[in-house]
């Protein structure tokens, strides 16, 4: 080993000044902390452990996709309808997504979010000035959530060959 440019002697002195019980405590600390975090996740009553998909987090925060949401968006009536919105309105091709084209998904999300923000702003403006309420966007968030879940199952999570048995 080459010499450390740092002052080894000073480090040794500092080590000697730490009580032994404190050293053991410090050594155990990382393990205690990470195991606590893992147990928190395992027993967490929430976001990412409910039915086996990380996308649940996204579903939860946007609201239940199949029921629409509190912002007045109409629910998508079927998975096929949601897929159509994504495939034709946003040109998302799942085969391509699986081939390292996650940028498309990102763009779709960006557009959906832009549209949602624009709608909310228009709605607030309409409320403030007693204008007619704008039409909600074509349920992009709901559609996206469903398709994200499908995408996760089909493209991210490897299919379980035993699932059909």
């Amino acid at each position: 080993m080459i010499d450390l440019p740092g002052d080894i002697h000073q480090e040794e002195t500092r080590r000697a000044s730490i009580p032994v019980w404190c050293k053991y405590l410090l050594v155990a600390t990382p393990l205690i902390v990470t195991l606590s975090l893992a147990m928190t996740l395992v027993f967490a009553d929430g976001s990412n452990q409910t039915d086996g998909s990380s996308c649940n987090l996204f579903v939860q925060v946007f609201g239940d996709a199949s029921q629409g949401n509190s912002e007045g968006e109409e629910p998508i009536q079927s998975i096929d309808q949601a897929l159509d919105v994504l495939k034709y309105a946003h040109k998302i091709d799942f085969a391509k997504l699986a081939e390292h084209e996650s940028g498309l998904l990102e763009r779709a999300l960006l557009e959906a979010e832009t549209e949602r923000v624009a709608y909310l702003k228009a709605r607030d403006d309409a409320r403030a000035s007693a204008l007619p309420m704008p039409s909600p966007p074509a349920s992009f968030n709901s559609a996206l959530l469903k398709v994200l879940g499908l995408y996760y199952e089909n493209c991210v999570k490897k299919p379980d060959p035993e699932a059909d048995n």
């Binding site: 410090l26 050594v27 600390t29 990382p30 393990l31 902390v33 990470t34 195991l35 893992a38 395992v42």
Partner: peptide, 18 residues
């Protein structure tokens, strides 16, 4: 997997500090 990850992440720190 989570507990295994915690053992590796925390165990690494414990070993390094030891």
């Amino acid at each position: 997997q989570l507990i295994l990850g915690a053992l590796i992440a925390g165990g690494t720190g414990s070993v390094a500090l030891a």
